[in-house]
């Protein structure tokens, strides 16, 4: 943990009973980064945010948000935080501009500031043309963008967005992440929850959650390495009969190769696990082709494992760990 962390959480626990709640949560969010909280529905993402926002009081542990215990927030602390809840809570009978102005006024912004800020933000979320349109006449995507604009009206330095991309199309989802990264680039800290695992790629840090626990929190690349034990080189042999010899050769090189196994569904494919796939790819090929008789390679490349697979792997590992502990 660093003194520049926007959020620091140590052993936080809030038990709702029947296994619901959050448990042993230790994590930190450095200033100017995006933390993505990824996990299935009901895994405690929203509760984690609510504790960090001071809406819920933990039973155990210690948490500070912007250097202060959230339950002891003063008005000045709250003025530095923005929040996009899961539900669309903007008002259907108010126009886009009125909705945004309402939220800004809750943060004590005078009318003059609201006007100039609103022009800027509506342009940012591409709602300038719809500023007089009523909330009830907005599409789902526009509503989400309006909520983002509302949450940014008072210029917060820390933004919590609870599943902002849920139920919207991939194009808009990508645009949202573009907004978030721009905000991050301006120095803001963002905590974004999502069920869409592939969105991990947009985050600086990802917390993988399951049953109220943070299974892992790290950069997306490190999470991938952690899940798979390293990076994978996918090798396709010219002759499937060379498979056994190739695997034995690579296994003997155990200071670099962490694991070798047949690729699922491919007769001539094998997966080689190394620390850095791009760095060790030429060496792996040399080792195989230098064998006598030579092992001919049809093709080889670093394997791009999807975050879905990484996520599933981490979940499975946690499940196995729990079963092992239980056994």
């Amino acid at each position: 943990m660093s003194p520049n962390d926007a959020i620091r959480s140590e052993d936080i626990e809030l038990d709702f009973g029947n296994g619901a709640g959050i448990f042993d949560q230790t994590y930190s969010v450095p200033e100017g980064t995006i933390l993505g909280m990824i996990g299935p529905s009901g895994c405690g993402k929203t509760t984690t945010c609510r504790v960090a926002l001071g809406l819920l009081t933990p039973q155990k542990g210690r948490i500070t948000t912007l250097g202060r215990t959230p339950t002891a927030f003063r008005a000045e602390d709250r003025e530095r935080i923005g929040y996009i809840p899961q539900q669309f809570v903007l008002y259907p009978r108010l126009s886009v501009a009125e909705n945004a102005a309402f939220v800004a006024s809750l943060y004590g912004m005078p009318a003059g500031q609201v006007r100039s800020r609103m022009d800027e933000l509506l342009a940012f979320v591409e709602l300038s043309d719809a500023r007089n349109r009523l909330g009830q006449n907005l599409s789902g995507g526009m509503q989400r963008r309006l909520m983002l604009a509302g949450a940014l009206m008072h210029d917060p330095i820390l933004l919590f967005a609870d599943e902002p991309t849920a139920g919207i199309d991939p194009v808009l989802r990508a645009r949202f992440w573009e907004y978030f990264r721009k905000l991050r680039d301006e120095g803001r800290t963002l905590v974004v929850t999502t069920q869409v695992v592939s969105e991990a790629v947009y985050c600086d840090y990802v917390a993988v959650m399951r049953k109220g626990r943070i299974l892992a929190v790290d950069t997306p690349a490190n999470l991938r390495k952690m899940a798979l034990g390293g990076e994978i080189i996918d090798v396709t042999l010219d002759d499937p009969d060379d498979m056994r010899r190739a695997m034995e050769t690579l296994r003997r090189w155990d200071d670099v190769v962490k694991a070798v196994h047949r690729a699922p569904g491919g007769e001539a494919d094998l997966h080689v696990v190394v620390d850095d796939a791009r760095e060790w790819l030429p060496e792996v090929l040399n080792r195989l082709e230098n064998q006598r008789p030579r092992i001919a390679i049809a093709g080889a490349a670093p394997l791009e494992v999807s975050y879905d697979e990484v996520f599933i792997k981490i979940m499975e590992q946690d499940q196995q760990r729990q079963e092992a502990q239980g056994g």
Binding site: L121, E186, G187, R188
Partner: peptide, 26 residues
């Protein structure tokens, strides 16, 4: 993907750079 415009200000200036508004007015 369309390029969204930049927004000015930001964490570096907030909230210290903001105009002070008395508590009663807020």
């Amino acid at each position: 993907m369309a390029n969204a415009p930049q927004i000015s200000t930001g964490a570096a200036t907030a909230p210290a750079g903001k105009v002070h508004i008395p508590g009663w007015r807020r």
